[in-house]
Design a protein around this nucleic acid. Structure first.
Lengths: 232, 232
DNA sequence: TGTTAGAATTGACATTTATCAAGTGCGAGC
DNA sequence: GCTCGCACTTGATAAATGTCAATTCTAACA
C-alpha cells in the first residue's frame, strides 16, 4: 500500500488513537484493491470476513427481501462499513456494491477483533464509531417513521445544500434512482415529489438543484437537528 | 440498593466482565428508583445525564416530529437504554416514558464514561452491546423499508409466538396502540391488518392471538432471519 | 352489579404511495 | 452528428395507508 493511503487510513477517527504496532499489524494483514463500478462486494447473510474502508469511489449498502430492494446507506471516502458484523463475528445484515470505480482497503475481521482485544485505545475508538453509526441509523429511522416522502426529500435537499456551502444550489451526490431508494420511495414518486416542491422554489436541472426560496422550503421541511444533523 | 438488584445488574452482559472495583464505583454513584406508569423519564434533545437500566416494568422509547409520534422500542427487564448518547456525551435522540410502574437504575453518565476509559473489559462489553443495538435497529429499518404493514404484523406475530413457546397461541406484550406504533402504522390500520390475516388462521381474542394455520401465515410473512432473528 | 373512561373496532372517505405503461431526453460511443 | 440505451418523467390507475367520526368492547372501580 502506498504511504499516502496508509496516512489516509491512519487519520481516520477509528485508527487515529491506536498504537503504531497495532496499526501496523492491521495494515500489514490488509488488502488494498480497486474495484470496477457496479461490482458486488458482499452479500447479506455471508459471514463477515473483512472490515472495509472506502478510500476512493462510492459504495452502496443495500438490503433485499420479498423481491424488494432498499438502499440503506451510501459510503463515501474515507470511511469504514459493516463494522458491527465484524466485531460480532456474525453474518452481514446488508449487501454492498460499488457505485463507481472504487479503491477499498480490506482488513481481515480476525485482525480487527484481535486489535480491539489488545489495544484499549482502539477499543475506545470503536465505541465512538459504533455510537455514531447507531445514532445515524436512529435518525434515519425517525426520518422514515415521522415524515412523508415529500418532507424527507425537502430535508435531504436542505442538508445537501448546507453541506455544499449553501449558495442557492446543490448537486445530487448520486443518481435519482438511488436517491429515491435512500429516501424510501420509488423513482416515480421522487419525480412527483420534486414537482410538489416546485412552488417552494425547488428547480431541478438534471442532477443540479436550485433552491430559490429557502425560507418557504424550510417552513415545509421543518428540519430537526435530532434527525438531520449528522454530526451530533 | 438491595443485593438482589445488584446481582441482577451485575449479571447483565454489559457489566458482567468488568472489574469489581469499577462495578462498585458505578453502582455506588447510581440511583435506584421506582417510577409510576406513564411517567416521562427523558426528553429527546436533553443532554444525556444518566444511563438507565430497567430492572422491573417496561419503558417505551419514542420520538416526535411534525406533530407525529413514533415508538422506537420497548425496553423490558433487564436491559439498558440510551447507551450511545451517554457514551458520546450528546443529547438524547429519543424520549422515554414508563409504560407500567417500573423500577429503574440510573447511573450518572460521567461515571459510565469514566468506567469505559479505565476498564478495558467494560469497554469491550460496551462494544458488544453497541454492536447488538446497532444490528437491532438495522433490522427494524429493513423491516420498515422492505415490508408492507400486513407483512410486518405477520412476522411480528410469528416472532412472539416462537418466543412464547410456539404452542399455537401468543400474548401481545403490550397494548395494540403501542404495537401499532412499533410496527409503524395507525391503530385503525392494525385492526384492519388483523382482519386481513384472518384467512391465514390469525384469531384475535383481546390481547391473546391464536394461530391456527402457521404454514400459510409463514408463507405470507416470509420471515427472514436477517430481519426477524433478534439474537444474531 | 352498574358506571364509566379509555381502548379497540368499524365505516366512509381522503391522501399518499406504488404500479404499469408510455413517452421524453440526455449522454456515451461510433 | 447520429443513434442507441438507459435514466428519468408523465399519465392513468390501483393499492395501501391515514383520518375522522361513530360505535362497541372491556376492564377498573364505586
Amino acid at each position: 500500500m502506498r504511504a499516502e493511503n496508509i496516512q489516509e487510513v491512519r487519520s481516520l477517527a477509528l485508527f487515529r488513537s491506536m498504537s503504531d504496532e497495532a496499526f501496523q499489524n492491521l495494515v500489514q494483514a490488509a488488502y488494498l484493491q480497486t474495484f470496477p463500478a457496479q461490482l458486488d462486494l458482499i452479500r447479506e447473510g455471508d459471514p463477515a470476513d473483512f472490515l472495509y474502508v472506502v478510500l476512493e469511489g462510492c459504495v452502496e449498502l443495500y438490503a433485499q427481501a420479498n423481491m424488494r430492494t432498499a438502499t440503506m446507506a451510501l459510503i463515501r471516502p474515507v470511511s469504514t462499513f459493516i463494522l458491527a458484523a465484524v466485531l460480532k463475528d456474525a453474518v452481514y445484515l446488508m449487501s454492498a456494491r460499488t457505485c463507481d470505480k472504487s479503491k477499498l482497503l480490506l482488513i481481515p475481521a480476525e485482525n480487527v477483533r484481535q486489535a480491539f482485544e489488545t489495544d484499549a485505545d482502539f477499543a475506545r475508538a470503536i465505541i465512538r464509531e459504533l455510537a455514531n453509526c447507531y445514532r445515524g441509523i436512529v435518525k434515519d429511522h425517525k426520518d422514515l417513521k415521522l415524515r412523508s416522502a415529500v418532507e424527507r426529500l425537502a430535508n435531504r435537499l436542505l442538508r445537501y445544500h448546507a453541506d455544499q456551502g449553501g449558495n442557492g444550489s446543490l448537486e445530487l451526490p448520486y443518481d435519482k434512482r438511488r436517491l429515491a431508494s435512500v429516501l424510501g420511495m420509488t423513482p416515480e414518486n421522487l419525480s412527483r415529489a420534486f414537482n410538489t416542491l416546485k412552488p417552494y422554489g425547488v428547480e431541478v436541472d438534471g442532477s443540479t438543484i436550485h433552491l430559490s426560496d429557502l425560507k418557504s422550503l424550510t417552513v415545509l421541511a421543518k428540519p430537526n437537528p435530532l434527525i438531520d444533523d449528522r454530526t451530533t
